[in-house]
Design a protein around this nucleic acid. Structure first.
Lengths: 189, 189
DNA sequence: ACAACTATACCGTCTAGCCGGTACAGTAGT
DNA sequence: ACTACTGTACCGGCTAGACGGTATAGTTGT
């Protein structure tokens, strides 16, 4: 023994990450307004003092979330580039809410941007720029790439709006396949 | 005389509308969080008591805004249907921020939806449904109509994010014309 | 000894909503 | 013509609670 386990004190997921998870979750589920320090601490099962030990202020919490989002998005750009079914297929299919860490972080970031946080707006703009760049490389025509990015953005808002319904209907796998077929008509070859 | 005028008491724009304008403006410029009752009253140059005379609660204020949005969107659906340059052209060109009353009301509604207000989500969903229906009538293929709607949605978020820059670059008139040309490739004939 | 917390008590500010009061226009009875 | 009253459109002050943040004393595992 010695080196590991013990009780829950060598936690599967560190408190700092649990706090960011809770912050994200509250932003996604209840919007900017519900993501208060008290609520975040409670959702992470940590005292308010404990939260402020890890993040000295709400700004620091926002910075932490945006940093994690940026890192996840950087990984994702690589996934898009190297996707077996091609970048466009991958981008479109992951533009509906998948529940992936990036997905949740991205929506949380959007909430902050809607609250006009300039840091959040900047990070989201940069992420979009990277995605666009990957699609441009794959598609060659900038106008077409732009249109594909817009469809991806549209899927995001759309699934954000319809999330409460249990059968999103427009976002089934079959619907995505049909949509990708339509997009295929945009391409020259 | 007798029936009208008097002093400034027959105001150019009624206080009730000025309050809704102020609420909208604050939502658009500063997000849900900044649109407090105090701020709305101040922006409309009305006391808080005056605000609460017209709208008994914040919920009532939200209802008022959503009702106005719904009415504007109903008019707009007709404008799209009868647009000289065609529904698709009109929809795409008015999906960037034009500063029109509908434009501002729609963005304000989006902010409320992001705050997870179910009424706002329902109204926005319904508006989108109407737009989609018009495009479907114009385009005949539902999948293509869906893709066009997504591009329209994408333009909205996009210009929401880039609003602070003064030269949006992707939303110039020329860029819109190129985008519409790309969309033209989606259509059969 | 140290890091990683918990628990509790505050503080100043903001927020939603309530309430009493005011000004004034119109109406109705006498 | 005067009085009494009603309805509309506000003002400004108030309160209870939420919020971000500070502080501090104590606990627990390594």
């Amino acid at each position: 023994m010695a080196l590991m386990s013990k009780n829950a004190a060598a936690p599967a997921v560190p408190t700092r990450d649990r706090l960011l998870d809770a912050f994200e979750e509250l932003l996604v589920e209840g919007g900017e307004r519900s993501a208060t320090l008290d609520a975040v601490a409670a959702a992470a099962a940590v005292s308010k003092g404990g939260l402020l030990y890890h993040f000295a202020s709400k700004d620091a919490l926002v910075d932490g979330l945006l940093a994690r989002l940026d890192a996840l998005a950087l990984e994702d750009a690589e996934n898009i580039r190297t996707a077996p079914a091609g970048p466009v297929d991958y981008l479109i299919r992951t533009s509906v809410h998948t529940g992936s860490p990036l997905d949740r972080a991205y929506i949380a970031g959007s909430r902050l941007a809607q609250g006009r946080d300039p840091r959040a707006m900047q990070v989201l703009t940069e992420i979009r720029r990277r995605w666009l760049s990957v699609i441009e490389d794959a598609v060659h025509d900038p106008d077409t790439a732009q249109a594909i990015m817009l469809i991806s953005d549209g899927l995001y808002v759309n699934s954000s709006l319809a999330e409460h319904e249990q059968a999103p209907k427009n976002h089934t796998d079959a619907a995505m396949t049909r949509l990708i077929a339509v997009i295929g008509r945009l391409l020259p070859s």
